[in-house]
Design a protein around this nucleic acid. Structure first.
Length: 359
DNA sequence: GAGTCGTGGAC
DNA sequence: TGTCCAAGACT
């Protein structure tokens, strides 16, 4: 097959300019705006991101606004979007841009690419879209599209393969319009060159595609399967006093769901005889209060990328002097939702409200 | 290089 | 219910 680069570029870019979706972050090319969208879109679907992006840009329209933001407020805006270190890293990086670059997002690979949370993909995406730089932006879409166009069976789960594709894109990227070229590859992957049942008959670069030529498009890309993680059981109490106050606590600042809030809980240990009574007495000693379980709320199965939680949630009442701290508080029931909670605890809270007839 | 780090939608 | 993800980065 005779692969003419300029014809390939034109076919892809013409198609993109004609068919691109009208998405909120495509309203203009403000580098900060593009940057925020790219961070939100990491491993996250477009439909999920849209409402979060709108709210985020309304609350933090500029670098200066975000630089001055409060960490807990940011987590609340990000609540439910997942991969919470993204927003912490973004905050850190934006503060650096604010202080070190006077609020102007740097336009070089070296400066922008060394910011926290900005990897090879985000570097290429932001610099090509916002500044028109011919730098590859290789994500899952691009690897799928390229592996089909060049009929390559390299395992796209490997870092080495991403680098291979970056080298390839460098050779074929348009220097006229790098933005439309990069976005065109991704848009093609999202709309036409889909993981399953690609719409090859509608594809603008079908004539350049070796996999279509060979009929191998359904076998590509090759990706090693990830093994699913183990299940860990937890027991959790929503603890109320007579006045309707609730105990909440903050998770550690590093690791899974860092700095988000939750209800008191503990992993169910195999040495326990009865998780309800064992946790009841353990919590009572730990917090210096009397704890009485009232009734079960629900059981939540929550699947993460690498493990599963099974949480047994109960209503309970507490009496005595609870000692508060920065990470462990008694708050009025109507203020619970001011705190950022991960989804499994949101579900428990919702079930609790229903049980108590609060909705 | 292999784990860690979320969530909800499609099939 | 199970599987595979979706515009990745960090350790």
């Amino acid at each position: 097959m005779n692969f003419k680069i300029d014809e390939f570029q034109k076919s892809l870019i013409d198609w993109y300019l004609e068919e691109k979706r009208d998405l909120p972050w495509r309203k203009n090319n403000d580098p900060y705006r593009v940057w925020v969208s790219e961070v939100m879109l990491q491993q996250t679907r477009v439909d999920t991101v849209i409402p979060y992006f709108e709210r985020f840009m309304e609350k933090y329209p500029t670098v200066a606004d975000l630089a001055e933001a409060d960490e807990q407020d940011l987590l609340k805006v990000w609540e439910g979007l997942g991969y919470y270190s993204r927003v912490r890293n973004l905050h850190h990086a934006v503060k650096e841009v604010h202080e070190k670059y006077g609020g102007k997002v740097p336009d070089t690979k070296e400066a922008f690419g060394s910011l926290k949370g900005v990897g090879p993909y985000t570097t290429g995406a932001v610099l090509s879209i916002a500044y028109g730089k011919p730098i590859p932006a290789v994500d899952g879409n691009v690897m799928r599209v390229m592996s089909r166009i060049f009929n390559m069976d390299d395992d796209i789960a490997k870092v080495k393969t991403r680098k291979l594709f970056e080298g390839l894109v460098e050779k074929v990227i348009s220097h006229e319009d790098p933005s439309s070229f990069n976005q065109g590859l991704m848009e093609l992957g999202a709309l036409i060159c889909t993981p399953k049942n690609p719409s090859c008959l509608l594809c603008p670069v079908r004539d350049f595609c070796m996999a279509f030529h060979e009929g191998t498009q359904n076998d590509l890309p090759v990706k090693k399967k990830v093994k699913k993680g183990k299940t860990v059981q937890y027991i959790s109490f929503i603890l109320e006093d007579e006045k309707g106050n609730i105990i909440v606590r903050q998770r550690p600042s590093e690791g899974l769901l860092a700095s988000l809030w939750e209800f008191p809980n503990h992993e169910v240990l195999s040495k326990w005889k009865n998780m309800v009574t064992d946790f009841e007495s353990m919590l009572g000693k730990e917090l210096g209060i009397e704890v009485d379980v009232i009734e079960p709320i629900c059981v939540i199965d929550h699947v993460f990328s690498h493990l599963t939680w099974k949480i047994h949630a109960f209503r309970a009442r507490f009496r005595g002097d609870f000692v508060e701290s920065e990470v462990q508080k008694v708050i009025p029931i109507e203020k619970v939702e001011n705190y950022p909670f991960p989804v499994p605890y949101q579900k428990i809270w919702k079930a609790f409200k229903k049980l108590r007839g609060m909705e």
